Simulated assay, not measured.
Amino acid sequence: MLSLFKSRTEKLTMKKYRILLIDDHKILLEGTQSLLSGLDDYEVSATASNGQRAIELLKTQDFEILVTDYELPDFSGLEIIRIAHSINPDIKVIVLSMHDDPSVVKGLLKENIDGFVLKNDAHSSLMQALDKVTSGKKYFSDEISEILVRQLNNPPEKSDLSPRETEIIKLIARDFSTKQIAEVLFISEKTVETHRKNILRKIDCSTLVGLVNYAHSHNLV
């Protein structure tokens, strides 16, 4: 009887892993928070809907786990992860995102993330990711794992961006529109679009988000 009471007491007093949850979509943020609130070993200690608020929380509170979206209104997921690691090198990072572009995945891996879960995965994937990373392992959802395997088996050729393409990718990363790029470089909008398509092909990328991530990860901005 005493041992049973002791076991229950230990369970009640056992420390939970503190999570900082970041997502700019209110419904998804609240839904994920509700999902995690029912777990015994974890608690969502704070939430943020933008990067600035997340940084404030990281500086003033202690968290064991960061669960963050990749794309935020004021910061990229890469920037938040870098800042989080600079504040707390031991924090575990799980990216919860809809982006599965190979360039995005590759850029995040360079930041030593611990897990990557796609938002269209089952809720159980996030719970599996939490259990894995807190035990010192990595977790990647099935689609992300397939992307990594494809990259290993078919590594992209060297990008060999031309000087003009490098100029354009820098401007795109600075949020210049096609029209603005054309005006700055004194070329037609059609030429800009042609260069954009060639850039995406050369860097093995299919989305604007992936292109911007490539620019950041290769120190082009």
Rank of each mutant, 00 (worst) to 15 (best):
K202R: 12
R8P: 01
S159P: 05
I83C: 01
T207K: 06
L20A: 03
N219P: 05
I94A: 01
Y139L: 14
F140D: 01
P102I: 12
T194Y: 07
D74A: 10
G38N: 12
H123L: 09
P89R: 07
D142T: 05
S162T: 15
T60M: 06
E183S: 09
N154Q: 15
S124H: 08
K15C: 00
C205M: 09
K132D: 15
K132H: 14
K119A: 10
L28S: 14
D62C: 09
V67C: 04
T47K: 13
K158S: 14
T191S: 13
D175R: 15
G38R: 14
E56T: 06
F63D: 01
L96W: 09
L29K: 04
P73N: 11
L39H: 12
N120C: 05
E64C: 07
V149P: 03
Y214A: 03
L161K: 07
P102C: 07
S162D: 07
V67E: 00
D204K: 05
V104M: 11
D74E: 14
I144F: 06
L21N: 01
A84Q: 02
N88P: 03
E167H: 07
K26Q: 12
I113A: 01
L185S: 09
E146H: 11
Q151A: 13
D41G: 05
K138T: 10
F116L: 07
R196Q: 13
K92T: 08
I113Q: 03
S159A: 15
L57F: 08
S145C: 14
T207P: 12
D101V: 07
R82I: 04
D90Q: 14
T134Q: 05
Q151L: 11
L108N: 02
M14H: 08
R18I: 06
I199Y: 05
I19E: 00
S217T: 10
V93A: 04
T13N: 12
I113C: 02
A215Y: 05
K16Y: 09
L118T: 09
V105R: 08
Q180T: 13
I187H: 11
G136M: 09
L185T: 10
A48T: 08
A215T: 01
E64Y: 02
Q33D: 11
P163Y: 04
M127S: 07
R174P: 05
D114H: 15
M1Q: 10
N153W: 11
T32D: 02
I55G: 00
E111P: 05
F116C: 06
E64A: 12
K26M: 12
L161T: 10
M14C: 06
S145Y: 08
E189M: 08
I203N: 01
Y214T: 03
C205Y: 02
M1D: 11
S124N: 03
L148P: 04
H99G: 00
K137M: 08
N50R: 07
I83K: 14
V209P: 00
I27A: 15
S217N: 12
L130G: 02
V209Q: 10
R196F: 14
G107I: 08
E146P: 06
V221I: 14
S162C: 09
S125D: 06
I87D: 03
S125L: 08
T68R: 00
V95R: 02
N112C: 13
V117K: 01
H85L: 09
E30R: 07
V212D: 00
S177A: 05
K106P: 03
K106G: 04
E143C: 09
